[in-house]
Design a protein around this nucleic acid. Structure first.
Length: 200
DNA sequence: CGAATTTGACCTGCGC
DNA sequence: GCGCAGGTCAAATTCG
């Protein structure tokens, strides 16, 4: 890592650096948001997890909706978990990438690896290594298309991304003049974690 | 030598 | 209650 990572897949600078559409190796094909206060009808309220199958039910499994645009497909879903009680959001997206671990603006520490049922690929578990930040993410390869990586963010960072600091210092012109870097980052993150399910 | 990763064991929730 | 599957822990190992 020679330059700061990025906080969230929909951050503008992350888009430029890591999901650059001109780079055929990496592209975001699906983007899903799990938002508190919104109950998905077909999900069990007591269930603590959502399988990767459900993440893409509207994209690859159900015929009608799956025929729509592949990029930026968003399916709002929510799960009630213990962590929801402290303000919990989940964002999942699928990225076409050879690399399983993408720089996303934060520093992650791997704490587990688990093979999942019905998938030949293991799932990796990461925690944000920033002190006091309990954000987690899961990374696994799409079982139907191993060229895709499914990344699920769990929680909201309580600190700024190192990337924000970096760009604020080194690449200030990349950001809109009316929006300071942190504000831009926060906007994107809030958008992704709090309101996307109803507006995308 | 400290930090990060690996990996088997353990914990918890859910379905039967 | 039991078994299964997903998630987390923590000791051992690796790496810079």
């Amino acid at each position: 890592m020679n330059y700061p990572e990025n906080p969230n897949p929909n951050f503008s600078y992350f888009y430029h650096d890591n999901i650059n559409p001109s780079n055929p190796e990496i592209e975001v094909s699906d983007y899903l948001v799990f938002d508190d206060g919104f109950d998905q009808e077909d999900s069990s309220p007591s269930q603590s997890m959502v399988s990767s199958e459900k993440y893409f039910v509207g994209d690859s499994s159900s015929g009608s909706n799956g025929a729509t645009s592949r990029n930026s497909d968003i399916i709002g879903m929510t799960k009630k978990t213990k962590e929801d009680q402290v303000g919990h959001s989940r964002v999942a997206f699928r990225t076409k990438s050879e690399l399983e671990v993408m720089d996303d603006g934060f520093k992650w520490r791997k704490y587990g690896k688990k093979s999942v049922k019905n998938s030949p690929n293991p799932r990796n578990y990461y925690k944000c290594s920033s002190g006091g930040c309990n954000v987690k993410k899961r990374v696994e390869r799409d079982r139907e298309d191993p060229s895709y990586v499914i990344t699920t963010y769990d929680g909201i960072h309580n600190h700024e991304s190192p990337c924000v600091v970096y760009y604020n210092t080194h690449v200030p012109l990349m950001l809109p003049p009316s929006s300071p870097p942190s504000a831009s980052a926060n906007w994107a993150f809030q958008k992704a974690t709090s309101h996307s399910s109803s507006s995308f």
